[in-house]
Design a protein around this nucleic acid. Structure first.
Lengths: 223, 223
DNA sequence: CGGGGTGTTGATGGACGTCAAGCCGGGTGG
DNA sequence: CCACCCGGCTTGACGTCCATCAACACCCCG
């Protein structure tokens, strides 16, 4: 039990005894598909680490539209925003399927950070990476047309080290509806653009949100 | 000299002797208007704290458009993104006028954070706030029309505690060109929408990017 | 006084959001 | 195991928001 502690990036550099200490502070929880971990407006007093499953983080805009921010996979954590600023959550977190999480209370976390400053480094690195990612997303939304945003997303899905010259099969990690929300567009437009891509020979669509992708061809689009 | 250390949020909770220690690690620099602090692609090996002046942080999109991310005022810092992740800068930083900054090398900062873990809390809080802000901006870009984004921005300019019922005079902290870049639109559109607002009696434009704003009227628009 | 960058205004077209109708697939309950 | 049904997805027609291009006014700075 509590196996999450040893497998989580922010802790896995510690010694065994230290991990044992952390495990005592940790609480385990299971959410069913569709369950909400927290609402916008909830006070935020704990850090949640995903152990198994998937969680989607989204916001509601002023006008009530849902905007997907990020999907958490095992090893990822959330609670960040309000944990260090004494405010409330501004986002929503929902389990996409049965999901196991470990929870650490804010007070316990503070104790830990004081005792083991290296944990702070890990969290700082994670925050910096997310900030980077978020700003990139902002820039894409602000300056690129939908077609390019979709192309960039697909290329991102291919992963880093891959050889773009070979077509690769990928599976979208979410529904097209969610993808639309993430990319700031509509399901209709996603559908149409993907058909276009297919017509142009950039991709080949398969059932269940899978597709074969010619990365180097798509990359042309993003010029 | 090095007065920045004592006036900066991330350090000002420390004792006098500790501050003295920090001052030894700090280096002072002055940039002239238009000078670049760093380019995208530069290795990032120091934290810069603004002491006096203004710095604008922007990115170039895939297609080469400039996107304004944020403006740093005295007390703000930058360098964050790459400082903790061993990567390179992805953004540009440019002095908007003569600007004094204090610099701490990455290695020195790490030493500090290990010795005084409370500094990490301050930085974590700042990162969390920026992340929050960045995600909100993303959501606005993804889901709101230009008119609403502008209205929301103006309301933000009014500041928090103010009484929306009274018209207030504000001065935009940047040119309309930069504002357009920040809000993901064009100077032409900004100009037109502000004229619209004026016609509707929501604002009254004055020279030098100043204007009188009826906050509660604008707030209606954001429904 | 002159010039470069900012700001304004107009005309135009294209990208994409919206509404509507229908399809399909898989999850549920009988 | 089949039938149903709901939600996701697709396709089409249509309208509109806003970027783009171009021309010019403005204003601060040198």
């Amino acid at each position: 039990m509590h196996s999450c502690v040893s497998s989580v990036p922010i802790f896995n550099h510690l010694e065994k005894e230290q991990m044992a200490e952390i495990m005592d502070m940790v609480q385990s929880l299971i959410y069913k598909k569709g369950e909400i971990l927290y609402h916008a407006g909830d006070p935020s007093d704990s850090l949640s680490i995903v152990n198994k499953g998937k969680i989607k983080i989204y916001r509601l805009s002023e006008s009530g539209k849902e905007q997907l921010i990020r999907i958490l996979h095992p090893g990822d954590f959330t609670g960040e925003l309000a944990l260090f600023t004494e405010t409330i959550h501004e986002a929503y977190a929902e389990a996409m399927l049965e999901t196991h999480v470990c929870i650490i209370k804010r007070a316990d976390l503070h104790t830990l950070l004081l005792r083991y400053p290296t944990i702070s480094f890990k969290i700082l690195a994670e925050f910096a990476a997310r900030l980077e990612q978020s700003e990139k997303q902002t820039t894409n939304l602000a300056t690129e047309k939908v077609e390019k945003r979709i192309a960039l997303y697909l290329i991102e899905c291919l992963g880093e080290g891959k050889d773009l010259k070979q077509p690769q099969e990928i599976k979208l990690p979410m529904t097209k509806k969610d993808l639309a929300s993430y990319l700031g567009t509509t399901p209709e437009t996603i559908s149409r653009k993907l058909s276009d891509f297919e017509e142009q020979g950039y991709i080949e669509q398969k059932p269940q949100n899978k597709m074969k992708v010619w990365g180097h061809a798509l990359a042309e689009l993003t010029r």
